Computed example of a mutant assay.
Amino acid sequence: MQQATMEQLADATGEMGRLIAGIRQEQWSGPTPCADWDVRALVSHVVQGSARFAVALGGEPQATTADPTAAGFERNAAVLLAAAGRPDAASRIVEVPFGRVPGAVALHLQLTELLVHGWDLAVATGGRAGFSDQLAAQELEFTLGALASVPPDRQPFAPPQPVRDDAPTLDRLAATLGRRIDAPPS
């Protein structure tokens, strides 16, 4: 499996920032593919998740924010990029929802989080997620391998959903993590 890179993280946070900045006022209360979250709750989750990963990788907690806006995400993304760029970030052991993992694994998890929630946000707002297909393929490969090692009682995702073999890679990743590809949010 290919090692995740800082350049990939910078590109993914940049694309997520673009998606968040493109949310129109009337879309903030709209539904998303995540049944329990509207657009505001999804963005809040992404903002807070970026802060958690940043702190786990050695970032300063006081430098992060819970502000569920494009500015809040940009602030946390900057802290995340700085923390992930630390020399010990890849080898640092960090706590994630299903256990302790090396920072290199946490970086893959953060990339996957950005890709899938970017997909969610694009579906919810009628936009297009502009993540690279190469990155989506890399994180799909990572996800398929990682899911096999997640204990059943700590599974943070919905069951995989059917998807066409020729679907875009990002759609296949989203379906692997429980998103229905054929239905808009309700």
Rank of each mutant, 00 (worst) to 15 (best):
M1T: 14
M6Q: 15
L9A: 12
L9E: 06
L9Y: 09
A10C: 05
D11G: 03
D11Q: 15
A12K: 05
T13R: 07
E15H: 02
M16D: 00
G17P: 06
L19M: 13
I20S: 06
G22V: 10
R24L: 05
R24D: 02
E26I: 07
Q27V: 01
T32F: 12
C34G: 12
D36T: 14
D38L: 03
V39K: 12
L42F: 07
L42H: 02
V43H: 01
H45F: 13
H45G: 11
H45D: 08
V47S: 10
G49W: 03
F53K: 00
A56V: 09
A56P: 08
Q62H: 13
Q62W: 08
T65S: 15
D67G: 08
P68Y: 07
T69Y: 10
R75W: 01
R75K: 15
A77Y: 03
A78R: 14
L80P: 03
L81R: 14
A82K: 12
A83N: 08
A84C: 14
P87W: 12
A89C: 03
S91V: 15
S91F: 05
R92L: 14
I93L: 13
V94S: 05
V101W: 11
A104Q: 12
V105K: 01
L107Y: 03
L109S: 01
L111A: 00
T112H: 01
T112K: 00
L114G: 05
H117C: 00
H117V: 03
D120I: 00
G126Q: 04
F131K: 03
L135C: 06
L135T: 00
A136C: 09
Q138E: 15
E139H: 15
F142R: 05
T143L: 01
G145I: 10
A146K: 02
L147K: 10
V150I: 15
P151K: 09
P152Y: 01
D153I: 05
D153P: 08
R154Q: 15
F157K: 07
P159S: 13
Q161P: 01
P162Y: 08
P162R: 10
P162A: 09
R164L: 12
D165F: 08
A167I: 10
A167H: 06
T169N: 04
T169F: 08
L173H: 04
T176F: 04
T176V: 11
L177M: 09
G178W: 08
I181L: 12
S186C: 03
